[in-house]
Design a protein around this nucleic acid. Structure first.
Lengths: 207, 207
DNA sequence: GACAATACCAAGCAAGCGCTTGGTTTGTAA
DNA sequence: TTACAAACCAAGCGCTTGCTTGGTATTGTC
């Protein structure tokens, strides 16, 4: 299943909002604003203005400002978990599975869902503890994908370091690309960047 | 020169505030609060209460709340640049220099200056653009330390990936440890963690 | 012991915040 | 046409925010 199909499937299951609908458009604008200005500095008036309604009207769709932040995070994780799962299944060797994961995460961070992924990383503390717990459970599925692949590589001695540590290091390293990676100017493509990450981990770049 | 001596030297040059003084104590508490609650969620009343004065009295020491954030960042960079410089000079081979840098950065993030380093990473956007520019200039010195060492390793073919990319990946990976690394419970020491990072990069762990 | 300079307090202002309220428009289906 | 819910507006409430102001202790210096 390709990327648009996966998105479509999630929309029809009501797990992700349709980007064309009112709710989806708001979440997209919210992600952009939260990334650019931070959650706290973004006012409900900013959010409302971004989709062309009055600030009070927001509360017809969401009970609170925090619920908007949570929705951004939850829907992003749902989408990216599905995309990652597909990417892993398509690859055949453990090394190619790892490459697929790295590539997919780089894409989620620097591509279409980039704004929302940045929010997930940098606005985490703005979530209430109750919401944090909910979101963390969703992340577990996502993370187990990584740990399975890294664990297999470790067994085959293709990895010198501990899988848990490597995953956490990669989380930081890949997330951080959002602060500096600009594919448009400078030449390094997403595939090129993926190669660099694999090379850093000691895996040869395929010809 | 050891760590306390370096700190003392910076204090006497007025580049870093004495932690025992009023200003230094405030900056320390500010770093802690900013890390725990975020800059925006921390009020000047919180800051004042943490050092036992009235909120208005803060503005005798700092012109604005943002100036406090900036001071936290500037002083942290000054201190850690000095510590890194010393660490690199002491090591003799390029590989050992890299290890010294990794170890020093992990220590700065997870040790005494950890609160302030976390602020530097996560509250960056809360700085005004003018302040960001100032702080960025200070970071350049710091970063050139890394690029020199990584560049040398690259020339000696001990590094497969591009030094600029590796440094940026390491920035993310090492910063991110602040979100998960808890030395007290779990066993992995700072040296052990440093070994893991080096292993991940394909460098053998010294016996 | 006089006298600045420094450090602080008590009170509060103006602006901006998230959110509520009561009422109006719009879409949908019988 | 009627009925009704969903979507939205206009206005503003109550509270918190960063910061100011005018005055009072505290400290260091000769």
């Amino acid at each position: 299943m390709n990327q648009p199909d996966i998105l479509q499937a999630l929309i029809s299951e009501n797990l992700v909002s349709d980007p064309a609908g009112a709710r989806g458009r708001l979440l997209h604008e919210a992600a952009r604003l939260f990334r650019d200005k931070g959650y706290e500095r973004t006012t409900v008036r900013d959010l409302a203005a971004a989709v062309g309604i009055q600030s009070g009207s927001l509360f017809h769709h969401f009970r609170s400002k925090e619920e908007i932040l949570k929705a951004v995070m939850v829907e992003t994780i749902r989408l990216n978990t599905a995309l990652m799962q597909a990417a892993v299944e398509e690859a055949e060797t453990p090394e190619r599975k790892l490459r697929a994961l790295v590539r997919a995460e780089l894409e989620s961070i620097n591509g279409q869902t980039g704004e929302a992924m940045a929010v997930l990383v940098f606005e985490w503390r703005s979530l209430s503890e109750a919401s944090q717990k909910e979101v963390l459970e969703l992340r577990d599925i996502y993370e187990s994908l990584w740990l399975d692949v890294l664990g297999t590589l470790r067994e085959h001695s293709n990895l010198q370091a501990d899988p848990f540590v490597v995953r956490r290091m990669l989380t930081g390293a890949l997330s951080w690309t959002v602060t500096w990676y600009r594919p448009e100017r400078g030449g390094l493509s997403l595939d090129g960047l993926t190669d660099q990450v694999m090379a850093m981990l000691g895996f040869a770049v395929p010809a």
